[in-house]
Design a binder for these strands. Structure first.
Lengths: 100, 100
DNA sequence: ACTTTATTTCGGTAATTTCCTAAATACAAA
DNA sequence: TTTGTATTTAGGAAATTACCGAAATAAAGT
């Protein structure tokens, strides 16, 4: 779970996800959308892969990356659940004194 | 927007949010839930405040923090929208060759 | 005025993250 | 088998982050 948050915390990685939302792309195609070096992008792919958000399929000399939309959906759902968004909050005042 | 992602990327800050979801709490009360030092927690409060996720109200010597649930909700909604979750994806194959 | 309590600011260290260039790998084509 | 293309791994620099103890601030109680 923590890996997914970390993966989403970088703007470059969010942009990669946005690109893969549209269609599968090779590592080189994705890199073409950035001014960053390819090794740097490779590092971002690794973070996304370790979070389970993308998957790379090797074919010949190219690797085509695809998004695991379901993992992203589940993560977002869990995030909303964790903060119990949509449900009413409890009392909204701090306890005035906390006896130890 | 980026500040919100960054704010959510740390487990300690997510726990602070979780605590404030239940009820408003003073800085000291929140700190009581962690083994971390108070200055460290103060730093986390600042990150959350700068992201607009919490707000501190000073009263006497204490500061009571409260969660801006609406900001969190909006951020999550935007996040889902950014990745267009719930909508169908486009073509799912990489273009075989990209002529420059 | 002095002390206590709650919290922050300061200054610095260690860990992590992001990024780069150069070199390695792996496959395909000539 | 040599060459070219796509991508990764390795090694390291720079920036950012998370953390701490000590000192500062600020309000309240004595």
């Amino acid at each position: 779970m923590d890996r997914i948050y970390k993966a989403l915390s970088d703007p470059t990685r969010r942009e990669i996800i946005r690109l893969l939302r549209q269609r599968d792309m090779t590592a080189g195609e994705i890199a073409g959308n950035f001014t960053l070096s390819k090794p740097t992008l490779t590092g971002h792919f690794a973070v996304l892969r370790e979070a389970g958000l993308i998957h790379g399929e090797k074919s010949g000399t190219t690797i085509t990356y695809s998004l695991h939309l379901s993992v992203l959906e589940d993560a977002l759902a869990l995030l909303m659940d964790q903060f119990r968004i949509g449900q009413p909050r409890a009392r909204t005042t701090a306890s005035p004194k906390v006896p130890s």
